[in-house]
Amino acid sequence: MLLYVTVGTNDLERAGAFYDPVLATLGFRRQRQDDTEIGYGGDLDVRCRFWVTKPFNREPATFGNGTSIALTAETRAAVDAFHAAALAGGGTDEGAPGLRPFHPNFYAAYVRDPDGNKLSAVCERPE
C-alpha cells in the first residue's frame, strides 16, 4: 500500500550517520544521495522506500506529534539491534524492545532520531 516514507532532517550528514547503521539492522542500505536527501532500500527493491530529506520548502524540519513509522523486522533480535543502533547513534528511547499488548507476538522497540522523528521496529513472529 505504501510506496515510500520520508522523514525530515535539519542536518543530512548527521541523519545519514544515524540511519546507515540503524536501517542496516532491518536489511536496508543507502542507495541514493544528493545534497538534499538520502534514499534507503532493500537489496531487492527497485526503488528507495525510506527517504531522509531536507524540507523542499527550505523551512526547518519538524516532527509530527502522533506520527510514528513502523518498520518490519524479521526477528526479535533485529528489533533489539535496531534499538541498540539507534541509541548508539544519538537517538532517544521511546520504548525498549519487548512484547506489546496489541497481540501475543507483537515485539517492538520505539526510538526517536536526532531530529525527533519517531520510529519503531516490529517483529510479529513468535520466537
Rank of each mutant, 00 (worst) to 15 (best):
M1L: 11
L2N: 09
L3V: 09
Y4K: 00
T6F: 14
T9V: 07
T9M: 06
T9C: 08
N10Q: 03
L12N: 07
L12F: 11
E13N: 08
E13D: 14
R14I: 11
G16M: 06
Y19C: 10
Y19Q: 10
D20I: 12
D20E: 15
P21L: 14
V22N: 07
T25H: 00
L26I: 00
G27A: 00
F28E: 00
F28Q: 00
R29L: 15
R30W: 12
R30F: 08
Q31W: 04
R32I: 08
R32Q: 13
I38F: 01
Y40A: 00
Y40D: 00
G41H: 03
G41N: 04
G42F: 00
G42W: 00
G42L: 04
D43K: 03
L44W: 11
D45L: 05
D45T: 03
D45V: 02
V46T: 10
R47T: 11
R47L: 12
F50W: 04
F50L: 10
W51P: 02
W51E: 04
T53L: 15
P55E: 10
P55G: 06
F56W: 09
F56G: 05
E59F: 08
E59V: 13
T62I: 14
F63A: 15
G64K: 08
N65Y: 15
G66V: 05
T67G: 14
T67M: 14
S68N: 10
S68A: 15
S68G: 14
I69V: 15
A70D: 10
T72Y: 02
E74N: 03
T75P: 02
R76W: 08
R76L: 08
A77S: 14
A77P: 02
A77T: 15
V79R: 02
D80Q: 09
A81D: 15
F82M: 06
F82G: 04
H83S: 12
A85K: 02
A86G: 06
L87V: 12
A88K: 14
A88N: 14
G89W: 02
G89T: 04
G90T: 13
T92Y: 01
D93Q: 06
G95Y: 15
P97T: 04
P97S: 11
G98A: 13
L99C: 04
L99T: 03
L99G: 05
R100Y: 03
P101E: 11
P101T: 10
P101L: 11
F102C: 05
H103G: 12
P104G: 09
N105T: 13
N105H: 14
F106P: 06
F106E: 09
F106W: 15
Y107K: 02
Y107A: 01
Y107V: 01
A108V: 12
A108R: 05
Y110K: 08
Y110G: 03
V111M: 05
R112E: 13
D113E: 14
D113A: 12
P114L: 09
D115P: 14
N117S: 07
K118H: 15
S120P: 09
A121K: 01
A121C: 09
V122N: 03
E124V: 10
E124R: 06
R125A: 10
R125Y: 07
P126I: 15
E127R: 13
E127C: 06
E127P: 07
